[in-house]
């Protein structure tokens, strides 16, 4: 084996391809994808290498994968936080992202079942009614758990960002309320131009200018909601991953994360029971076409089950990891 050269000899430090003095815009953008502690340790030298490497599709993909890996598997001797807190934070963010997906599926279910024929059936058939009440209760519990676990972390991130004048982080935190405001604005607009609501404002949206226009409006409304949900989740996740807040906040959020995940499982189970009970007790409604946009009720129910089940499974797995990090 060849002995290594002393530090005075620097093979490979030739200046023929020396990087520029300051990072290029692409390099600055790429560096922002990495955790702040990683940037602090490797940012300058990694930026120099990026400036010497043409940003091909392969290179961009390689950098994206490395950035995700740096967040998920933080390494480095100068890591600021204990690894346990880093993993705990990742697990809790996964629970949060799963919960958002769960809420999207839940809103589809809510939209399908809020009126006739399902509301009267829930009153007439106790099993369907109990399943529906369990769904509502579970949804409320999961929301409260997310608020209890997430709001202190979000406030701490905002406080630190304000103190450090970290405008990027403040901007990321602003994505969620701005997205929500845009979606509420669109909702109000659609409600105002639609027919007078017969049984609630939400159903009036589909009545905008006849079935075709109404369906188009509904799809736009759902699309904006999905975009807002995705943008908010990514922004909150990015802000949390980049923020240096008290690690004990993430320890305290572990229990609400477990409660959220368990509530999601309960709700997914209750939705399954609701559908089976409906199929047995009121087959005409179950096999009808009262699903989203007048599609099959059964298919809408199955779609909701699949989405909720997947989100709940991911959340439970992440919550168990969070608990095991605390126990370790």
């Amino acid at each position: 084996m060849t002995a290594i050269d002393g530090p005075e000899r620097r093979p490979g430090t030739d200046r023929r391809v020396a990087p520029t003095r300051s990072p290029s815009p692409w390099t600055r953008l790429a560096l922002h994808l990495f955790p702040s502690a990683w940037q602090e340790r490797f940012g300058t030298e990694f930026g120099a290498l990026l400036d010497q490497t043409p940003p091909t599709v392969r290179v961009v993909f390689d950098v994206l994968v490395a950035a995700v890996d740096a967040h998920v598997h933080p390494t480095g001797p100068r890591r600021r936080w204990p690894l346990m807190i880093e993993r705990l934070r990742i697990s809790e963010l996964v629970v949060f992202a799963s919960w958002v997906m769960f809420v999207v599926a839940g809103l589809a279910f809510q939209r399908m079942t809020e009126g006739a024929p399902f509301a009267p059936i829930a009153v007439a058939q106790p099993l369907v009614g109990v399943a529906y009440a369990t769904i509502v209760a579970g949804a409320v519990v999961s929301l409260l758990a997310v608020v209890v676990g997430g709001v202190p972390v979000a406030l701490a991130i905002a406080r630190v960002a304000l103190a450090r004048r970290a405008w990027r982080q403040l901007g990321l935190l602003a994505v969620a309320p701005i997205s929500l405001a845009i979606w509420i604005g669109l909702t109000l607009l659609l409600v105002s131009v639609g027919d007078p609501p017969a049984d609630g404002a939400w159903r009036a949206i589909i009545d905008v200018g006849g079935p075709l226009l109404g369906n188009a409006a509904f799809l736009i409304w759902v699309g904006v909601f999905l975009l807002a949900a995705i943008a908010s989740t990514v922004a909150v996740g990015a802000a949390a991953l980049d923020a240096e807040v008290d690690g004990s906040l993430y320890r305290r959020a572990a229990t609400p994360a477990v409660v959220t995940a368990v509530a999601m499982v309960v709700v997914a189970g209750a939705v399954a029971i609701w559908g089976v009970a409906l199929a047995v007790l009121s087959p005409a409604a179950f096999w009808g076409t009262d699903g989203i946009l007048g599609t099959s009720t059964t298919l809408t129910w199955l779609g909701v089950i699949v989405a909720m089940g997947a989100a709940a499974a991911v959340a439970i797995r992440a919550a168990v990891r969070a608990r095991s990090e605390l126990a370790a």
């Binding site: 050269d5 490979g12 391809v17 120099a48």
Partner: peptide
């Protein structure tokens, strides 16, 4: 690559 002596990132990639 480093068995031949110290190198920085770009030199490692080339080597």
């Amino acid at each position: 690559s480093l068995a031949a002596g110290p190198r920085h990132g770009y030199a490692m990639v080339e080597d």
